[in-house]
Design a protein around this nucleic acid. Structure first.
Length: 112
DNA sequence: ATACTGACACGGG
DNA sequence: CCCCGTGCCAGTA
């Protein structure tokens, strides 16, 4: 049977270029609504052997969760901008770039 | 088995 | 907007 991580990677690989989803969203799509932290762990564990577009997964509200002290913070921002994703400060403009996937309720978080 | 630690989310203050 | 506590779940010491 497919492990939770397999599902997470599968979901992340379906994110179209130029769009982003939140850790919580991936957790829900993978069948574990409360496993957002596991998703983050899975992303940090991604390797060249199992390539996944980890940079398209962001925190709630479009925040880049990776510590600004870590090099990956800038790498992620740069990769997203290369795909056309726009930022307002350090957060993605979710109203236009969050990938929607059959979500019954509209995304309620898009303020500041 | 207990304690601590995350690339999280969310409600409060 | 920032900082904190709580809920969450697997890995590590």
């Amino acid at each position: 049977m497919e492990s939770f991580f397999e599902k997470v990677y599968r979901v992340v690989r379906t994110i179209p270029r130029g769009k982003v989803v939140t850790y919580g969203q991936v957790a829900r799509l993978a069948g574990r609504p409360h496993a957002a932290r596991m998703v983050g762990w899975a992303m940090s564990a991604s390797s060249p052997a199992r390539p996944v577009p980890w940079h398209r997964v962001v925190g709630a509200g479009g925040r880049l969760v990776i510590s600004k002290a870590v090099q990956y913070f800038q790498i992620q921002k740069r990769l997203l901008q290369q795909e056309g994703v726009e930022f307002r400060g350090d957060r993605v403009v979710m109203s236009r770039f969050q990938w929607q996937r059959g979500l019954r309720k509209a995304s309620r978080r898009a303020q500041s």
